[in-house]
Amino acid sequence: MGPVAILLLLIVVLSFLSPYFLTPRNIGNILSQTAVIAVVAMGQHLVILTRGIDLSVGANLALATVVGALVFQVTDSALMVVLAMVVSGGFVGFINGSVYVFGRLPHPFIITLATLSIAKGVALELSGGRAMPGMPEFIRTIGGGTVLGVPGSLFVVVGIAMLMLVMARNMVWGRWLYAVGGRPEAAVQMGIPVKWVLISAYTISGLCAGIGAVLLAGRTDAGSPLFGNLLELDTIAAVIIGGASFLGGRGHIGHALIGAVMIGVIRNALNLLNVDIFFQLIVIGVVIVLAVESDVLRNHLEGRMRVLQAARQQ
């Protein structure tokens, strides 16, 4: 409940600080800006649940928008463009997971940092380093338009959140994800296919980056190799601020969503209050430190409680 309370408090304080904050137009702004972070953060959240990290999401998203723009040059089919972006994202994610698992890397940090560079490079190479304007109308509507008066991106966010909720809570796969994050050695002993669980988490994170690419390309009506800068920061921050644990196995999709809205609200408020963009980076960084520290503290306290409880029962 902590993160929700903080978010509500934030909203109340900000509505006093700025008369524009609670206007429908501004709320619409926050939602459409948050949508990309939210979708990608939901994928990031799965990876963090397994004690991992996906640093490649921003570059992955940029590459996907470029791939989408290129496909749009040869076909008018919105479906093909969407498919190209999502598959491109999923492919990079699959590479992340496969190299991490089968390459027996000590930590996913290294491979996802490498694919960050590779995806960015490929995106720059394919696009010639320039933005590529033009997206099918369907994608523009999803990313930046409204359907029945509701931002199109909201449908995407809600749809993915519901799908992930079912996958994480009702499917065996979801249970395995938590088991692998909770105790990887025990997961092996219990016969859980740990390698495939990990690969699937990274692949889905990549797919989410691809879906995020659809939203961002739609909103800006373009593909660009420069999209998604620092998106890894925003999404990791969203997951941790939202209340999931960096130590793995703890958290749910709501954490990623609440965290994404918090990041969106903080960014929006700093804009409304005319805080300059350089200072915003500092604020976000400080918020991440606070969130990670509270996560560590929470786990420490839990350990202490267990010792106390055990001592009482002796």
Binding site: R175, W176, Y178, A179, G181, G182, R183, E185, A186, A187, Q189, M190, G191, I192, G249, R250
Partner: peptide, 16 residues
């Protein structure tokens, strides 16, 4: 080989 983040029933059936 218990999962700290899971309940007894989730631990019982982990992997099966």
């Amino acid at each position: 080989a218990l999962f700290d983040n899971l309940t007894p029933s989730q631990n019982f059936y982990a992997g099966r």
